[in-house]
Structures are given as structure tokens and as C-alpha cells.
């Protein structure tokens, strides 16, 4: 075991790791940040997406030691400073973009990465960008709506 340090949600943190400790395990078990979820073992589902140095990555497919010193943001770091929901989080609630909540952290993190790259994506661009995030509950309708609404665009009435 070695001590691995990084910045998570603006705070300097460290935890014990092995070489095989995944970033997702570092966050969940090392730091107790259980908002990052594990939904698969093949880098497909995207429930574990976090931002590493501003980029969306699947935290289940990165070794913690490989991103030592990085600046990591997780779902726990997405609310406003006063604790209220951030714009994307609020849009997900307003448009019922989540049901069981399990894929939601990854969806929010991927959506945030999308809007950072492309502030007003088309519907097709949203759908394409989210292809690495699987949701089993919503049929994606309200997720896509929420992301478009978060970008300030019109969405279908229903």
C-alpha cells in the first residue's frame, strides 16, 4: 500500500492504494464519496464518470495511482457553493431526468462535460455524446430534455 494524493472537489485528499486500486474505489472506499457508482466491469455503462483535470473519464477504468496529483470532480462537487443544485442538477430534477438515481451521477458528469465543450448542443449531439452512459429507467427522453434545458434551449412540452 502507498499513499496516493490528489485534489477532489477542491480539497487536497489522500488515501492508501495498491497498484490495482481503481480511481472509483479510491473515491468510494478511500474517501467515502459513494456518489460515484459502479454499474459494469467493461467500461460501458458510465455510472462512474468523474472529471479528471476537467475531462470526463470512467473512474472504473483508471488506476488511482495513474492520476496521482490530478484535480478530480465528482457528483459531490457539482452543487452550488450554498448547497443548492447546480444548473444541470436542477434541470435533471425539473425535467424528471432520473428515476432510480443509479446512473444519474455519471449522466450529470457527462452532461457537464458536454456543455463545457458545446454550450448549445442539438438533440442529436446530446444523444450521441451520452452514448457511453446507460440508463435503464428513463428511456432517455427526460435526460435529453434536461440537458437541452440546462443549456437554455427549448425542449418538447411533454
Amino acid at each position: 500500500m502507498t499513499k496516493t494524493s490528489m485534489t477532489v472537489n477542491g480539497k487536497a485528499v489522500s488515501a492508501e492504494t495498491e497498484g490495482r486500486t481503481l480511481l472509483s474505489a479510491y473515491l468510494r472506499e478511500g474517501l467515502g464519496l459513494t456518489g460515484t457508482h459502479i454499474g459494469c466491469d467493461t467500461s460501458q455503462c458510465g455510472a462512474c464518470v468523474v472529471h479528471v483535470d476537467g475531462k470526463a473519464v470512467k473512474s472504473c477504468s483508471v488506476f488511482a495511482q495513474d492520476v496521482e496529483g490530478a484535480d478530480v470532480t465528482t457528483i459531490e462537487g457539482m452543487a452550488n457553493a450554498d448547497g443548492s443544485l447546480g444548473t444541470i442538477q436542477q434541470a435533471f430534477q425539473d425535467h424528471h431526468g432520473l428515476q432510480c438515481g443509479f446512473c444519474t451521477p455519471g449522466m450529470v458528469m457527462s452532461s457537464a462535460a458536454l456543455l463545457a465543450e458545446n454550450p448549445t448542443p442539438t438533440e442529436a449531439e446530446v444523444r450521441h455524446y451520452l452514448e457511453g452512459n446507460i440508463c435503464r429507467c428513463t428511456g432517455y427522453h427526460n435526460i435529453v430534455k434536461a440537458v437541452m434545458a440546462a443549456s437554455g434551449q427549448a425542449v418538447p412540452a411533454e
Binding site: 458510465g46 479528471v52 470512467k58 462535460a113 458536454l114 457511453g132
Partner: peptide, 9 residues
Amino acid sequence: IGDPAVRNR
């Protein structure tokens, strides 16, 4: 290739 998160790594 893959999806955005995969392309970042």
C-alpha cells in the same frame, strides 16, 4: 472511437 469518456483516456 468509443464514447467521450473513453476518448479522453
